[in-house]
Nucleic acid binder design. Structure first.
Lengths: 157, 157
DNA sequence: TGTATTTATGTAGTCAGCTACGTAGTTTTA
DNA sequence: TAAAACTACGTAGCTGACTACATAAATACA
C-alpha cells in the first residue's frame, strides 16, 4: 500500500503503531455493533478493571489502566451518563470518589464476556505470527524500562 | 506499572500500541530538541517522502505516507508555514498542487540525516528483541490484508 | 457538445488521548 | 497547632489523527 514510509523502516515506527491501533479499535467498534451491544472499545479498560476490582478511586483506576487522571475522569463521566457505573464519596477520605459497576454495568459485562472471548480468539489468530506482536510489545516495554529511546539516542558513540 | 490492563492481555492491544507510539513520538521530539533541530516527528513522513520523490501532488503524498488527504493537507500547511516546502499549481492539471522541498527544507534534511541514523540505531537496539516489533507489525498488517479483525471475529464458529 | 462522473483539493467538525493549572481535603512538621 | 507540603480530583484547552461534506477541474459518454 504505502511505499516510501514502509521503506523508511523503523523511523516511522510510531506512525505504524498508531495506524495499527486505530484500525483495531475501529474494528472493535464494528464488532460490538454487530453483536447489538452498546459499547465503546475505549470503555474496556475501566469496565474490565472495575469488574475485577469492584471498588476503586479515580486515581487507582487511572493507575490501573495506565491513563492520566483527566483522561480517566472523562471516561468515568461517559460511563456514569450511560449508567454503567456509580460513584460515591469515600467517608474516610473526602477527597476520594469511589466507583463501582452498576447493575446495568454488571449485566453488560455478563453479556460481553462471550464476545470478549471471540475477540480474543480473533486477535490471537491475527497476531500469532512468527514474531508475536503482544510479546514484542512487552519486550520493548521492558527494554524501555531499562533504557528509553531518548537515553539510547543520547548514548550513541 | 499498570496491572489489570496488562493482565487483560490481547483485548487491550490497541491501547498498548497507542501508548507505545505516543512514548516513542514524544522521545523523538526530545531528541530533535536535544540536537537543536526545529523538527516535529509528525513531519517526518512528508519530509522523508519529498526528499526521495522530489515533486508530488497532495494525493500522491497522502497515499505515499498512508494518511488521509485532509491530514496530509494540514501537515503541508504547517510545513509551508515553516518554509520547508514550496507548492505550485500543475500546469497540465489545474486541480493538482505540486509540492517540493524548499532550499531550507533541503538543508534541514542534510542536517537531519546523521540524526536519523542515530535514531535508527537506538530504535533498532530498543526493538530487536526475541520477537522483533517491526517484523511483527509487518506480519500482522499482512494477516489483516488476508482477513481483518472484524471478519475474523464474525467467522468464529 | 453538453451532461454525468470521477478526481484533486479544501473545510469543518469529531475523537481519544494528553498537559497545564486550579481547588479542596489530608498529612507532616516546626 | 498552624503552616507547609502532598494528594485527589476537576476543568480548559491542545494534539494528531480521523470522517463527512463541498467545490472545481478533467474526463467520459450520449
Amino acid at each position: 500500500m504505502s511505499n516510501v514510509i514502509n521503506e523508511s523502516g523503523i523511523l516511522a515506527i510510531s506512525t505504524r503503531l498508531q495506524r495499527l491501533a486505530d484500525t483495531l479499535r475501529k474494528d472493535g467498534q464494528l464488532i460490538y455493533k454487530a453483536h447489538g451491544i452498546e459499547f465503546e472499545p475505549k470503555w474496556f479498560p475501566v469496565i474490565y478493571t472495575l469488574y475485577y476490582k469492584e471498588t476503586m478511586s479515580v486515581m487507582e483506576i487511572a493507575a490501573g489502566i495506565g491513563y492520566t487522571h483527566p483522561s480517566t475522569i472523562s471516561l468515568l463521566k461517559e460511563l456514569e451518563k450511560q449508567k454503567l457505573i456509580r460513584s460515591r464519596k469515600d467517608k474516610r477520605d473526602e477527597r476520594k470518589r469511589l466507583l463501582t459497576l452498576s447493575e446495568k454495568g454488571q449485566e453488560l459485562v455478563q453479556q460481553m464476556l462471550p464476545v470478549w472471548k471471540r475477540m480474543e480468539k480473533a486477535l490471537t489468530a491475527l497476531t500469532n505470527t512468527a514474531n508475536n506482536l503482544m510479546a514484542a510489545i512487552e519486550e520493548v516495554e521492558a527494554q524501555m524500562e531499562v533504557k528509553g529511546f531518548y537515553e539510547r539516542e543520547r548514548g550513541i558513540r
